[in-house]
Design a protein around this nucleic acid. Sequence first.
DNA 1: GAAATAGTGTCTTTCAGACATTATGTT
DNA 2: AACATAATGTCTGAAAGACACTATTTC
Lengths: 241, 241
Amino acid sequence: MPQDLQHRPKVALAVDLAIFTVREDRFQILLVERANQPYRGQLALPGGFIDTDDEDIDVTAARELAEETGLTADRLHLEQLRTYGRPDRDPRGRVVTVCYLALMPDLPIPVAGGDARSARWAPVDAILTGEVHLAFDHQVIVSDAVERARGKLEYSSLGAAFCPAEFTISELRRVYEIVWGQQLDPRNFHRKITSVAGFLVPTGERTTRDGGRPAALYRRGPATVMHPPILRGHNQNHSER
Amino acid sequence: MPQDLQHRPKVALAVDLAIFTVREDRFQILLVERANQPYRGQLALPGGFIDTDDEDIDVTAARELAEETGLTADRLHLEQLRTYGRPDRDPRGRVVTVCYLALMPDLPIPVAGGDARSARWAPVDAILTGEVHLAFDHQVIVSDAVERARGKLEYSSLGAAFCPAEFTISELRRVYEIVWGQQLDPRNFHRKITSVAGFLVPTGERTTRDGGRPAALYRRGPATVMHPPILRGHNQNHSER
DNA sequence: GAAATAGTGTCTTTCAGACATTATGTT
DNA sequence: AACATAATGTCTGAAAGACACTATTTC
């Protein structure tokens, strides 16, 4: 049994990103059109192979996110999702990919990154229904990522990651409604979200950008977890599965 | 930009396992003593490099679990935890490891697998406190794995994964108490756990192995998620973080 | 004024937490 | 009988869901 790495089989390791936003009243994900084979011309998740040996994969993901969106990782949420390693997932050979989940607000010029590939937003529904087809096993990855993102809204302050730095309660509620595809009662949402200490910090400012009575502006507070969580309806299967 | 994998830098890919059980009234994890350098003689998580190119990493994890415990993966719970890829985590060079979390009941001869390495159970507390030191970054991995396991008990039927095929409500409650390090009210636990449809299926049998009045035996039902969840006390920080 | 949205309050039901009581076995 | 644990029931308080009402802006 060899003690060094020379005799170990090695694999190509990729990092892929599922970058979500809420844009034009829809829950959307950033896709790129592949410039090269395989799957040339098809849509896929942005990502790439790891190329430096002196970099944590979390850092690689953050760097690629910055390349793709022009945003540094400290400005938005980035977390590891899962690693996918089916041997047949890439026709070129064994490629294992570590996937990350990122949530970002709808910023003016999020796309058109440094990369030459053309990036675009696509509604997640179109992918989940199979209406839009993706390269590799990215369909499955998107499905997992959406489930993770939706679940996280229940107990974390991550909904605010889709909002600009300062936002109103209504704007935050709209994010929840769009991501979950479900209407929420404005009064109860307001009560629930403001009752969590440290979750939202009022800026003191007000805005009328949503029309009607001016709404108080908030920014994200230090608290990240909500306990107990907001639950999205009872329409989920409690029993069977 | 090359289209094949020949020019891609590759890494050695490992699979490590965090195998938990409840044994002798303690929450324990399976560790092995390393037979080779680096960290020879030190305790570490069981695992190894992927050696076949035609195998999903999930399958690799299941196979190694079987080698280590003698149990097939369909008998116990196995899920991917996270991938760790700090460049300095292995002194031999770049090794990325995909870690898995496994939960198993306290079986008669779980250890003494086919592998030559000596395996042993260790209380997780000793690792979390730093009392027991582990090789590589396995300390961090165990910490993440424990947090995942504890959290999963809140909303899933995974507590039963620590129990034998047939178990009483009290035995299941003891699992929760030991994993969470927290006393639970027997009456309330009974009410809560039996109220979830499809969670526990009564076998019709009874046992007196716990003393006192005979308790009904149950086995795991088809339902896997509990909604709403059982919460472990209010002693967590709801706000700060 | 009307229309729109923000924010507060109230009522009801559900459920967690605390705890009493009864049931059924062993010694 | 005493003892141990199982199982069911009751009470209370907190919080979710449903919804009425008031407040403050624009048009």
